[in-house]
Design a protein around this nucleic acid. Sequence first.
DNA 1: CCAGGTTCTGCAAAGGTTTGCAGCAGAACG
DNA 2: CGTTCTGCTGCAAACCTTTGCAGAACCTGG
Lengths: 340, 340
Amino acid sequence: MPATIRDVARASGVHISTVSRTFSAPHLVNPETRSRVLACAENLGYRPNRAARALITGRTHNVGLIVADLANPFFPPLIKAAESQARHRDYHIFVTDTNEDPAVEEELIHALAKQVDGILLCSPRLNNSLIEQLSREVPLVLINRQVAGLPAVVMDVGQGARLAIEHLIGLGHHQIGLLGGPRGSWTNREIRRAVTAAARSADAVLTGIGPNQPTEAGGAAVAEQVRRSGVTAVLAYNDLMAIGLIEELDALGVRVPADISVVGIDDIALSRRIRPRLTTVANPTPAAGRAAVDMLLQRAGDDRRTTAQVTLQTELVIRDSTAPPPATRTAVVLASHVKE
Amino acid sequence: MPATIRDVARASGVHISTVSRTFSAPHLVNPETRSRVLACAENLGYRPNRAARALITGRTHNVGLIVADLANPFFPPLIKAAESQARHRDYHIFVTDTNEDPAVEEELIHALAKQVDGILLCSPRLNNSLIEQLSREVPLVLINRQVAGLPAVVMDVGQGARLAIEHLIGLGHHQIGLLGGPRGSWTNREIRRAVTAAARSADAVLTGIGPNQPTEAGGAAVAEQVRRSGVTAVLAYNDLMAIGLIEELDALGVRVPADISVVGIDDIALSRRIRPRLTTVANPTPAAGRAAVDMLLQRAGDDRRTTAQVTLQTELVIRDSTAPPPATRTAVVLASHVKE
DNA sequence: CCAGGTTCTGCAAAGGTTTGCAGCAGAACG
DNA sequence: CGTTCTGCTGCAAACCTTTGCAGAACCTGG
């Protein structure tokens, strides 16, 4: 039903190759012929079939972007930045959501493989060897994950987490809880590594809690456990969990930050809006999206495999959800400064 | 580089058609042959090329989903519901974002056209005739938009808006502001239509403000104008605008709901969390996502063009951002009930 | 033993496009 | 006027599959 290159050729009395060139290499065809062909194409409503084109050129001008959970406000800024970057380069981005399920993730990579020129894998939950294997099927750029030999852009969440712990220790906390994220998360391991080191060198005691769903529900679910654990401060895997935790603690009659301090990670827009405003580690998500697109397209351009790994800096944003622990409260308040 | 059907055929000593059938019609091939072929395929890491398959079958098993703004929390529930519904039917969903730009929207439809079996168009900003024309290129299902002859699922926002206005009038408001959304939005027109009728029949005065960007920034931008306009209540195009407006009014020293009542539309998760909790019109977004996928896939199945239009009910959720207007405050409070 | 059926496999066309090669006409040049 | 070059166009193979058709091998029943 839709017009093909052949219909246009017939209508304008030229060979299909001329029609093809009219669209993909206009300078090779006589201006007169060109405009005749274009007129016929317009008439018939002809549009080149991108799938057929891709079959022979090997370039689809699409890139896939796989995230764990579209409903997590952490992702949209990254996605939008990636989209606009891709658009400038005449590429389109197809976004899909894995529902935090590694099986779905693998499924999707296979499904996308031949329909895109590469895939941006955001915070994948797959294990390293599987990722490596899949990367032989389709060019991959990882975001917030490092696998030897694969290009990646990561946000230095370890550094941010370290700053967060030092901030808490500086306030006088010794018993600190660490709310783990989903299993398979590289970010999760980075946080744990950095935090463990920071805590050890300051004689603070760390209590791990998790793994958990990286959502508000996941945070809320462990509120009771946090309260009973005796910690005076908590670093959560992400802002969503921190927010869920704070709300549930509030429901249990535990005040934040008076009784327990809470720090999140990501600095989603919501964190600035809740009360108490959340102290958190800010991630440069738009920059990450742009960088990932650049790496992928550059890699697609040259054939040589770029395996660069870009690290973006994070930053601790101190707001109102952290304060000295109850016991030492007055003493420390005298010595500390209040910052935004 | 990646293995093709031909490599598998060579390796297992059969014709390519047999390999093809092994994957797309296994019952037609001898179990013995089949397992041999499968073993070779596994060995070579062969995966059928979905693009090539689509070229000949005409079925890609993908569906496109185009939204105006991924960062608007209104969309994720719809998207996730659509994705899970599609997954059950062995389809994949590709999501893209138009940045509220009609030109990008058209671009995207063309780009997606041949790579999907149909497109779900969410709150499109395109005009009717263009939509109609594009629908001849690729099957379309509209969400929150009605165009004669095209299948659509809409949420009855008109009814919800009417309830909202009646609620405000019931509280004693006579001067009501209507914060318009983006131009090109069908929802916007529906709201205006319903609200105008409701206001007329109750002798309330309506002040239109807009069009505006349907974001928090858009809501914040008109706060000053709202304050000066003399209205005592506002119905916003969506929750995001309502929230932005409330925050900015707060910054201007105008209290909600004491000085001005505000009602939103959508009932995004955030609306339950801000203070005052937002009175709003709840939309059944997951149901809409599922219904749209069903309509599209059913339409793809039978060849006959289904043009059904499904309407889903909305609901007014009364929370804390609405109250009687300042003047009549005490009098009416005595006569009214407080509900969640 | 033969007619008819079943089960499996191969052949080749088709789907819509791109692209290296070759051919052709006319221009430029000596 | 012959040669070389330039600009344009057509030819046909290629990309990776699917699928209608036909043939081969085998079986069943009469």
